[in-house]
């Protein structure tokens, strides 16, 4: 079983972030929220592992 990766793991992080902002460009807040929700579900499915997903939820809850 693998661990939740919280160290740097995205090549060209700036490209990813620009693509993420680009996806939201021109959307209303409601449409943007819906896009984020779909994105979370798609990424969760890609990860698949319930243990990792619950660690990710904990990490997100404890920051901010």
């Amino acid at each position: 079983m693998s661990d939740l990766i919280l160290t740097t793991n995205i090549d060209h992080a700036d490209d990813f972030y620009a693509a993420l902002l680009g996806a939201h460009e021109g959307l209303s807040k409601a449409d943007s929220d819906a896009l984020n929700a779909r994105l979370v579900l798609i990424l969760a499915n890609h990860i698949g592992d319930n243990d990792i997903l619950s660690k990710a939820i904990d990490a997100a809850k404890s920051s901010g």
């Binding site: 160290t7 995205i10 972030y17 902002l21 939201h24 807040k29 984020n36 990490a59 901010g64």
Partner: peptide
């Protein structure tokens, strides 16, 4: 330049305090 852009930006900053992975996203 939008509410969501700020939400995402602030999320990156919140995560960056604790997690290494978010730091390269801080610009």
């Amino acid at each position: 330049n939008s509410e969501m852009s700020r939400v995402l930006r602030d999320a990156v900053l919140d995560l960056a305090e604790e997690h290494d992975f978010a730091r390269p996203l801080v610009n």
